[in-house]
Design a protein around this nucleic acid. Structure first.
Lengths: 192, 192
DNA sequence: AAAACTTCTTAATCTAGGTTAAGTGCAAAA
DNA sequence: TTTTGCACTTAACCTAGATTAAGAAGTTTT
């Protein structure tokens, strides 16, 4: 359970009482692989922190093609930010890729904590800023890098994940078809 | 000058004293079109709020190709978030596209305000969350929509901007070459 | 341990968008 | 007022990656 507190304390210092208050507002749950935590069209009620296992968020466009927005493994946060802040139905799915233990923080408790412990508002501000920076970089990468270079970046961002998740989902994350990804991989192997 | 306070008060309520304190930490400057507010490799020292005029942020990749990250017109904020939070040299340029009046808020003053007026930390948290949501949507759009559809989205996001900025920069924003954009535009005109 | 699914691969063919190049129309220098 | 330099267009040709299809290799279910 220390993991989430460590994560928070990378950015703000909490007192013992604050840590207890924070933990009292969270729940821990276990989920099996393939569980859908959030469906498109639903309202996202929780932020998820990954103690163990792997999650992914994705949407499905008109052509019935999935596009992976993000993965989350140990120590990462996950949620549908749009739905979470607007409390309207979102477009994202959140799925468990590998059996997971998650810390759940409900929208209401999160809002309460912002007021009760302003340091937590700071923490989530910083977290969101970091996400935004990463997202902006990925956006620019998608505009200027080749599929191969984007695969490199994926590997740096999500170290070790290559071996743990179906490669069609990596293809989706970097924005190519599974067929093209397979071809690209074969080319990379031959080259090295 | 009311503009920036209105902008803030869409999300948090400030007292008269707080508004004064906030304003005392900002500066107003006028800039001519083509002014470079921030160069790649520099450390971003300010957040910019646009009272009037138009800004854009972009980077330049190895091939000497520009990629537009964002535009900002009246009522929008602009900055290099990466450089601003890390205080390290960034990759972004920020340029004035149309003569502008800007409100400057320095990194140090912004940090002080977070502590002096926690409501402002809340305000910037919300602002950053909204940016993140918009960025995630654009990322997914880039993975799943055609150039034409992305142009539609550009028009919705930046109403009226089509007529005010060089079209090669719209092309860059949606992620196509100026030549292709020109061809696409001709096709759209013929169709309607 | 077969049946039923999925994931991954290979290969032929196709296309959205890129590249190169040449020309037009302006606005800003000079 | 000419000249320089962008912004934009058009058109021929090119390519990264998509699409379609079919088979191979696991996994999961029964």
């Amino acid at each position: 359970m220390a993991l989430i507190l460590n994560n928070i304390e990378k950015h703000v210092q909490l007192t013992v009482e604050e840590k207890e208050l924070f933990l009292s507002k969270t729940e821990i749950h276990q989920y099996k692989a393939k569980t859908i935590l959030l469906n498109s069209g639903q309202i996202c009620k929780h932020s998820y922190f990954v103690n163990s296992g792997i999650l992914r968020s994705f949407n499905i466009n008109d052509n019935i093609v999935e596009h992976v927005l993000s993965f989350a493994c140990e120590g990462w946060w996950m949620g549908d930010m749009y739905s979470l802040i607007s409390q309207k139905p979102g477009n994202l799915f959140i799925e468990v890729l590998e059996d997971a233990e998650l810390v759940l923080l409900s929208k209401e408790n999160q809002e309460q904590l912002y007021t009760e412990i302003p340091k937590l508002e700071r923490f989530f501000r910083i977290l969101t800023q970091n996400s935004l920076v990463a997202n902006q970089e990925r956006l620019m990468d998608n505009l200027s890098l080749s599929a191969e270079e984007r695969f490199d970046k994926f590997n740096k961002r999500y170290a070790n994940l290559v071996h743990k998740i179906p490669q069609k989902q990596i293809a989706s994350y970097i924005g190519v078809t599974p067929e093209f990804f397979s071809k690209m991989k074969a080319k990379l192997l031959k080259r090295n």
